[in-house]
Simulated assay, not measured.
Amino acid sequence: MKQRFPFRFGTTSYIIAADIIPNVEYLADKVDDIELVLFESDEFSNLPSPEDMRRLADLAADNDLTYSVHLPLDVYMGHPLGSERDRSAGKCQRIIELTEILPKSAYVLHFEAGPGVDINGFSEDEQARFVDALGDSSRLLLERNGLPPSTICVENLNYPYDLIWPVVEEHGFSVTLDVGHLEYYGFPTAEYLERYLSRAKVLHMHGTKEGKDHNSLACLKPEALDLVMAALGENPDRERVFTLEIFSEEDFMSSCEAMRRFLL
């Protein structure tokens, strides 16, 4: 699958049952981009050491790899408390600094309000405060890292993306268009592709099985995959990343099989 599409074909750093380095070694000759799923907590951390980072950089140089870095899931950029927004921006900044030496395609960021908070249940006033909070934390993040804003790609989640689009647009962020989420939550994939693909540096692709997402692409409706591939053909960008956001070797192999009919 490597260098066989008009985009950078990739998957996550958790395909085989091992740490990040063995996964990248396994995937290096199979994909163009690897999504680094990084996290740290009081109980557990998978953050690579400086020595590991140098190894990741060497593997990238030797195999024409890039990395899309998924910023931590436990950051809440839309939290009502300024202290929590500051903590979240700081946590993102630590990952940005940690991965500085890597060749990166994008940073993937979630806009959330707090652990377990359902943004779909917000009143109009709560929505407005959420959006204001996102603007505040976005300014904090950009002030701290000096990155081009377009390298930060804000992902669609379980609420309508048009709620946060003004923040994405104002700050010059790009989009992570998660097609698996669109299909799972029932959003109109065709409309999202038409509206947001031009700003999407990253696509996340996965299917739904037994009521759960992040399964093999073989579980995504074929018509949805056809729709995405047609849109990518009409809007070519060889630097755009197409990530199989899955987490097992079996799902990776069956997803690759589902993509074979689109090989160049």
Rank of each mutant, 00 (worst) to 15 (best):
H204Y: 10
N215L: 02
E194L: 08
T176G: 10
L220S: 01
K209N: 10
H214T: 06
F173N: 02
V175A: 11
C219P: 00
H206V: 10
L217M: 11
K209P: 03
H206P: 02
S198T: 13
L182E: 01
K209H: 14
T208R: 13
D178N: 03
D213H: 07
T208G: 08
L177R: 02
A190Y: 02
R199T: 04
Y196E: 09
T176M: 10
A190Q: 12
C219A: 05
E191W: 11
H171R: 15
T208D: 08
C219G: 00
N215M: 06
T176V: 11
K212D: 11
R195C: 05
P188W: 15
C219V: 00
Y196D: 07
G186T: 05
R195W: 03
T189L: 13
L197Y: 10
E170F: 09
H214P: 00
L197M: 12
G211D: 11
H214Q: 04
L203D: 04
A200C: 13
K201I: 10
H214D: 06
T208F: 10
E170T: 15
K221G: 00
A190C: 03
N215C: 11
L217D: 04
E210A: 15
E194D: 14
R195M: 06
V179K: 04
D178V: 02
S216I: 01
S216E: 01
N215D: 06
Y192R: 01
Y184W: 01
L177F: 07
R195V: 07
S216V: 01
K221F: 00
G172R: 09
L197A: 12
E210R: 10
V202C: 07
E194W: 09
K209A: 14
A190I: 06
R195E: 07
G211I: 08
S198C: 01
G186I: 03
Y196K: 09
D213E: 07
M205K: 03
L182S: 03
R199C: 02
F173W: 11
L193R: 03
G172P: 15
L203V: 06
H171S: 15
D213P: 01
D178M: 02
L182Q: 03
E170N: 15
R195F: 05
A200Y: 09
L182N: 05
K212S: 11
G211N: 11
K209C: 08
G207Q: 05
H181R: 04
Y196R: 07
D213K: 08
T176Q: 07
R195I: 01
C219L: 00
Y185H: 11
P188R: 14
G207W: 01
G172H: 09
E194Y: 09
E191A: 15
N215S: 03
